[in-house]
């Protein structure tokens, strides 16, 4: 029942920034005295709805207004025009009341106090939310276990590693059991094991408590692991509101074959012809051969046959082309880069 209710609803959401730039024309020195007011369009008329319990990813190249969208939805920025309603509130108007039920992690910024143990920062949060001590303690234990914070709860934030800091930030955002969580690049700078752990933790939070999650990231692994649904933003426009599978089906038309062959092996002419015709892209470094091909033009079977006829091969892997390459092509096709 709650999964069907609308959590975030944005209509023609628009935000324009003002920038004061040095004049380009005019007398030298004199022109520097004056500043021209420029309007920089950021988000332009985005309309979308997100239901409670969903995990949605915001995808787009740098400068696509992903962070602007998150800030508008958090109530930190006021929209220039258009409206958004989040959990029945207008975020920029009822900020103090609204933020009680949301959590936010801004990957590039810290929210915990720099010089005090993170345990104390957490206690401050308890008093900010006016939470009951017992309930809070139980939740704190649950999260410190899940995020493995217990070994450094008494260390001040300044002494933590990047990964520890990020886990503490995520914990701080979730302690008050928000029903909506905004994550702006939560895995930035983390190593692979930490990323994997964080992702599984977020999925668990979503499944267990039905927390709605809106995530922005440049890490495609994050997207594939977490977000069934993605909103693609580019130059401030909402370009697609679709599932990740649909994106893969549409843009992921290439496959990749990777194998090891003897260094001295000369490749069959038929394969070189295919490369010449543009059906496959091939790169060879020592023993390693990397082939990217369009399965509609040439089948994997055909390529394997050709290679096997030429000589022995080992360590064959056949996979979808990686997500980063896919997204790059999508951005290129959408003329964003």
């Amino acid at each position: 029942m709650s999964s069907a209710s609308v959590c975030i609803s944005a209509t023609e959401l628009t935000r324009t920034y003002t920038r004061y730039a040095v004049r380009e024309k005019g007398l030298p020195l004199i022109r520097r005295i004056f500043r021209d007011r420029q309007l920089i369009p950021a988000l332009q008329g985005a309309s979308f709805e997100i239901s409670s319990g969903e995990i949605v990813g915001l995808l787009g190249p740098n400068g696509a207004s992903k962070s602007t969208t998150v800030k508008l939805l958090c109530g930190i920025l006021t929209p220039t025009s258009g409206t958004c309603t989040v959990q029945g509130f207008v975020p920029s108007k009822d900020r103090k009341e609204y933020v009680k039920s949301i959590g936010a992690v801004f990957g590039q910024r810290t929210q915990l106090w720099w010089d005090v143990p993170i345990r104390d920062s957490f206690s401050l949060l308890r008093d900010i939310y006016g939470a009951d001590r017992h309930a809070w303690k139980a939740r704190e234990e649950e999260l410190t276990d899940a995020l493995e914070l217990s070994s450094f709860m008494n260390a001040p934030l300044r002494q933590l590693s990047l990964g520890q800091k990020m886990r503490a930030e995520v914990c701080a955002a979730l302690l008050h059991r928000p029903s909506l969580l905004f994550l702006d690049e939560p895995t930035i700078g983390l190593d692979s094991p930490s990323k994997v752990k964080l992702r599984s933790f977020l999925r668990q939070e979503n499944e267990q408590y039905g927390t709605t999650i809106l995530l922005t990231t440049h890490d495609m692994e994050d997207m594939t692991a977490l977000c069934p649904r993605v909103l693609v933003l580019g130059r401030g426009h909402l370009l697609a509101d679709t599932t990740l599978d649909a994106l893969f089906a549409r843009y992921g038309k290439y496959q990749r074959l990777h194998c090891r062959i003897p260094e001295t092996l000369s490749l069959p002419d038929a394969l070189l012809e295919l490369q010449h015709a543009g059906s496959i892209r091939m790169s060879r470094q020592g023993e390693l051969l990397d082939l990217i091909f369009d399965p509609h033009l040439v089948s994997a079977q055909r390529i394997l046959e050709l290679l096997l006829r030429a000589g022995s091969m080992e360590g064959i892997t056949l996979s979808q082309e990686d997500a980063d390459a896919l997204v790059s092509r999508m951005y290129r096709e959408m003329k964003l880069i």
């Binding site: 900020r95 933020v99 949060l125 939310y129």
Partner: peptide, 21 residues
């Protein structure tokens, strides 16, 4: 110094998403 640094770097946003005056 911490508050000033937060305003300068924009980390103050994290205080703005908390229900405090």
């Amino acid at each position: 110094a911490e508050l000033s640094r937060q305003i300068m770097t924009g980390s103050i946003v994290s205080s703005m998403v908390r229900p405090v005056h």
